[in-house]
Design a protein around this nucleic acid. Structure first.
Lengths: 309, 309
DNA sequence: CTGTTAGCGCGTTCAT
DNA sequence: ATGAACGCGCTAACAG
């Protein structure tokens, strides 16, 4: 009788998904682990993830590792205990040991890496072409007349920063510009690091006229410092940075950015994960999607002044 | 015997929290609903929420209403079905009818509003002092010599924008500046609206020399437009905007901002919610925390030029 | 098509 | 202390 259902709805009955999931031995929850939710790249990725998951009837548990391996392990355990249908992760900068991640796979839970991937074979990834982006960024600076180009990188434990650095080196090489390790600065992805690095290049006694910043936080920190010091961008120093979308244009209308859409990455990652979830877990075959990034050159018409040495 | 436990761990046993929660008839999951995850205020609030919840052993399900009432209803239903321990919400701009929210309370699930609250009595809220912030922002512009001050508001359905507007009006009144409704522009919280509004004030034939932007998106949009048009900030037009933290300083080192820490609001909201969850649900008494905001005046030493009419 | 039943994995209770 | 058994609310399988 549907009368019963009507009465139930009337009484405010709400079916218990916990019981349902327990019985069916599956959940409609996707676990997401990112280093920090508030970093714009990740929050926009999460936005794409949530939206895509919601459309397929999935919920999303969001957690942050705060760049700590210990926390990441903890979170993976909690996700296993909650029997999530699959996991999307951008690993912490401390993640050099992958046992906890492999544990998930052993369990049959699909896991997919986005943006910050690990080089363990047999994994699915949705990533950008870090090498090419680094190459393009550097070449752009060169073709705008920059002669001495610094590189603000990120933690070298992360493959993405290794690859971006490689792009930088190969671009220099192609254009017969010598590579100087002293011009490469790493950071722990804090704004202060970017400021610190900018300060360093100013006091090096070398006329650096270009910076390729491989992470937005460094770019912002550097920009803050340089602006305060009265350095003109891009006239004195041209910067190409990975974009933190809402700021890139306002911050400095002439800033050239590598546009890496978090939303798009999140969407694609979720679609791929859902495909894996819906298949029998046995038949998951790893798949890697490499997205192209877009270099948005806003300074193309403003060539560097030839006054630069 | 703990030998059994050891063997269990060895076999990769993971206790099933679904079954545990079903049995105990409670979960350690907090539901969070925000309009858009990627807006910086919300992502930093979520960061605070996740961090605080994690420390108390709670998970966080994050959802976005995308400003749609229909989706919000949907999400609340889903949270009820998942038997979340409590809900933190910043309502959508379409939320003028509160049945779905009251449904939660009837169920005994604590619900707490943060930032965007509703004026239904008997609720718990963690909010900022919108009236005072609006008042301070406007008075700051006045005391820096602004004579004709526009206000970029947000959707008037939301109490927070009504209150900020009220602060603006009262400040004008106090300083005997006439209030002109034509100088108040609303927006749907899109950057384009901010640009559109900036365009309007430029073509009004009135010498507007100050803008109080009650939402960061408007401030950014306006700034983009004005910079493109060659308007000097704050010399030609001074702006006070609610801050989108990572940009405020870089965007325009002289921009004055109302600093509204999402992280802090998220942390406090979660602490309060957890307190309510841990009590017997019968004894929840509504509590409202009103946080003060900080006006960070970066243009205090740069008074407007008297050349402004 | 409708009605009944077993059991998902845990925590609680009651009996040893 | 240790163990056995029940039931949380649901769904799938099976019977009528």
């Amino acid at each position: 009788m549907s009368k019963i259902l009507a009465k139930a709805a009337d009484l405010g009955y709400q079916r218990n998904l916990l019981a349902s999931n327990l019985r069916k031995n599956r959940t409609n929850t996707i676990g997401v682990i990112v280093p920090r939710i508030s970093r714009h790249f990740f929050s926009s990725a999460i936005e794409g993830i949530e939206q895509t998951a919601f459309e397929s009837g999935y919920n999303v548990i969001i957690c942050q590792s705060l760049e700590e391996l210990k926390r990441e392990r903890n979170l993976i355990d909690s996700m296993l205990a909650n029997r999530v249908a699959g996991v999307l992760i951008s690993v912490s900068m401390e993640t050099t040991d992958y046992d906890h991640l492999l544990g998930l796979k052993k369990n049959g839970t699909p896991i997919l890496f986005f943006d910050r991937h690990c080089e363990i074979p047999g994994n699915s990834n949705v990533i950008i072409d870090d090498f090419q982006s680094g190459f393009n960024a550097t070449e752009h600076l060169i073709s705008n007349g920059c002669k001495i180009i610094a590189h603000f990188s990120g933690p070298q434990e992360l493959k993405i920063y290794q690859n971006r650095l490689r792009g930088y080196r190969v671009a220099l090489e192609k254009h017969k510009i010598p590579y100087h390790p002293e011009l490469v600065f790493t950071s722990r992805l804090m704004e202060e690091d970017g400021m610190e690095n900018a300060k360093k290049i100013m006091s090096m006694g070398v006329n650096i006229d270009g910076i390729f910043a491989a992470n937005d936080v460094s770019a912002i920190g550097a920009m803050k410092y340089l602006k305060r010091e009265g350095v003109k961008i891009p006239e004195d120093i041209a910067i190409v940075g990975f974009s933190n979308e809402p700021i890139s244009e306002v911050i400095e209308p002439s800033l050239t950015t590598i546009d890496q859409s978090g939303h798009k990455i999140g969407k694609l990652a979720t679609e791929l994960l859902l495909k894996q979830i819906k298949k029998e877990s046995g038949s998951i075959r790893p798949e890697t999607v490499i997205l192209e990034t877009l270099l948005i050159a806003r300074d193309s018409s403003k060539h560097l002044s030839t006054a630069n040495k």
